[in-house]
Computed example of a mutant assay.
Amino acid sequence: MHIHGGVSGWAMFPEPKERVMAEDVQAPVNSARTSFTPLPDAKQVGDLYVALPKGNKDGVEWAHARQTILVEPQALYELWKDETSYPLWMEHVVSVTPGEGKTSHWVIGDPEDADGKRIQFDSELTEDVPGQKIAWKSTGGEVEQSGSVEFKARKDGRGTVVTLIQGVKVGALASFAASVAKRGPKQTVIEDLRHFKQMAEAGEIPSVKGQAHGPRGMSGGIKEWMYGETNPTPPGTSEGPLTAKE
């Protein structure tokens, strides 16, 4: 038996029958992890995880966002394919007018400021897989950008994983576009996909416009400026949510 002495008395502990060395202890296996669980900032191809593009590469500022939306992939695809609805959920999109073939004309600015700055450019679809993926690129105008959105049903049946990727050519025009939107490319992608989720699931985009709040302090003021929280909220739609897949 081991006897351990102390200032206030003695304590006796039985000798262990067998010593266990640290290297003999095996870490438990996380059986809760499944083959389809996505890693942060990555997309899965089979069992292989591929990092999504982000940051500045070859003069293009890449950004991405991902949301799980409780709606079937086909319904989400059809909602995204409706270009005329973009002003309802994309920030600072004044109008999108379908053109010939797979083209469209975009006008960007503050919808609430009729006399404010406007940026215009044309875009065309480069890939269109019904219910799965839409990709695009600009073809002329004041902005050089490209991107894609993918819709992938979760294997557990709980909605659709939507991944949005977008790249904007860095330069004077991109800076001008950012000044109009009051957001950087990364935050713009995050907010647009968040609004898309709200409209798809709830049929509308919540707004706190007109609601009073107390002083936010220095930290709150910095975040308000960084994230463009004074941007007008897209109007959304009152047609009701899409059919969710339970």
Rank of each mutant, 00 (worst) to 15 (best):
I3K: 01
H4W: 01
G6Y: 00
G9M: 00
W10Q: 01
W10N: 00
F13G: 00
P14N: 09
E18Q: 15
M21Q: 08
A22S: 11
P28W: 03
P28R: 11
P28A: 03
F36Q: 15
T37P: 00
L39P: 09
V45N: 15
G46N: 15
L48V: 14
Y49A: 12
V50A: 03
L52G: 07
D58L: 14
V60F: 03
Q67K: 15
Q67Y: 11
L70E: 05
L70T: 01
E72M: 04
K81C: 10
K81M: 14
D82Q: 01
Y86T: 06
T97K: 04
G101V: 06
K102D: 15
T103W: 06
W106M: 09
I108E: 02
P111I: 05
Q120Y: 09
F121Y: 15
D122H: 03
V129S: 12
P130D: 06
A135S: 14
W136H: 15
S138Q: 05
G140K: 01
E142S: 10
K152P: 03
G157K: 12
R158W: 11
T160V: 08
V162L: 05
Q166W: 01
G171P: 00
A172V: 09
A174Q: 01
S175A: 11
K182W: 06
K182T: 13
Q187T: 14
T188H: 01
T188C: 06
E191V: 08
E191K: 04
L193D: 02
L193S: 01
R194M: 04
F196C: 06
K197F: 01
I205G: 08
P215Q: 14
M218E: 11
G221N: 06
E224D: 13
W225G: 09
G228E: 04
P235E: 02
T237Y: 00
S238C: 02
S238G: 08
S238H: 12
L242E: 02
K245D: 03
